[in-house]
């Protein structure tokens, strides 16, 4: 359970429950699962978990807030998309990107979220974002500030921290002086050994290129950008019966976060095999592991 000594905050992304949510469990069941971990944060995918997106009913919005209240949860990060290749005959324009991002910011605010992750379409194999990202984000920064929401694109494998994509994001923060644009780290970038978890929808070549190849970003790189990190998605694939994870170096990650004073969220992102019900067990294991490691790090 969380106590006054904890400074890391724990949450779960509903992404974890892909396939199980709306089939084996309702949104309310998912909230109950998260609350039972002693976690405080719920992260959602706007386009996944809002019934009637992008125009949910007043009833749905009221139920959302009632659910948070009933289960003692805080809305953390809202996942959004800027689908730059929305059509096959043309790309999204800057104006259209602004309309989409602004709409998600307003929805996120209505639902009580404080960070928003826009997933931006890419134009290259090493995941360079479509160039509309910069003018689109710049045009909504003022509104994000009014709403108290930090926009944070995710640093996700196969893009490491030391990469031009991250340099460009940091340069944007520098140039605009904004406090409402930061980074989101997906812990998949720290993966050290291959996973055989099957990523549905992708062929063998794509799985090898992006999702199985361990990037093994060193902790020193995380330390360098930590002052700019607004949120962490605790990506993982498999935690074994003895609470060990062969892919993601949790002891190193938690120790680094504790030593360098990170006080934000670790939000579970289970991305292992989509066997019915497995996500629920795996998220519990991850929370047990993370709490033990935090306790251990603070006892040093």
């Amino acid at each position: 359970m969380t106590s006054g000594h904890d400074t890391l905050k724990y949450g779960v992304s509903l992404y974890s429950y892909t396939g199980d949510i709306y089939t084996l469990l309702t949104l309310d069941d998912a909230m109950a699962e998260i609350a039972d971990l002693g976690a405080s944060g719920i992260e959602i995918l706007g386009e996944g978990n809002i019934s009637g997106y992008p125009t949910p009913s007043t009833r749905w919005i009221d139920d959302w807030h009632a659910g948070l209240e009933r289960h003692g949860l805080t809305a953390t990060n809202y996942g959004s998309w800027i689908d730059s290749r929305m059509w096959q005959h043309r790309d999204l324009s800057v104006d259209e990107g602004v309309t989409i991002l602004r709409r998600d910011l307003e929805l996120a605010s209505t639902l009580g979220f404080t960070t928003l992750r826009p997933k931006i379409g890419v134009v290259s194999q090493d995941l360079r974002p479509h160039p509309i990202w910069e003018p689109v984000v710049e045009r909504v920064l003022e509104r994000a500030a009014e709403l108290g929401i930090v926009i944070c694109p995710e640093i996700h494998a196969p893009t490491p921290i030391r990469h031009e994509v991250v340099d460009d994001y940091l340069a944007f923060i520098e140039r605009t002086g904004t406090e409402h644009f930061r980074l989101l780290i997906d812990t998949g970038i720290f993966q050290r050994t291959a996973t055989d978890a099957h990523h549905e929808g992708l062929d063998e070549e794509a799985q090898e290129a992006g999702w199985r190849r361990p990037l093994a970003v060193p902790m020193a790189d995380l330390v360098d950008v930590l002052p700019y990190v607004a949120f962490i998605q605790a990506k993982f694939f498999d935690i074994r019966d003895d609470l060990t994870d062969a892919q993601i170096p949790w002891r190193d990650i938690v120790t680094t976060l504790v030593e360098h004073g990170y006080t934000g969220y670790l939000s579970s992102e289970y991305e292992g095999d989509r066997v019915p019900g497995r996500s629920l067990e795996q998220v519990r294991r991850q929370h047990a592991l993370l709490r033990l490691l935090e306790k251990e790090a603070r006892a040093r």
């Binding site: 998309w81 689908d83 730059s84 290749r85 929305m86 997933k119 931006i120 379409g121 890419v122 290259s124 194999q125 995941l127 479509h130 929808g201 992708l202 062929d203 070549e205 794509a206 290129a209 992006g210």
Partner: peptide, 8 residues
């Protein structure tokens, strides 16, 4: 999925 390289 526009956030996955077009090749895939």
């Amino acid at each position: 999925a526009p956030y996955i390289p077009a090749e895939f």
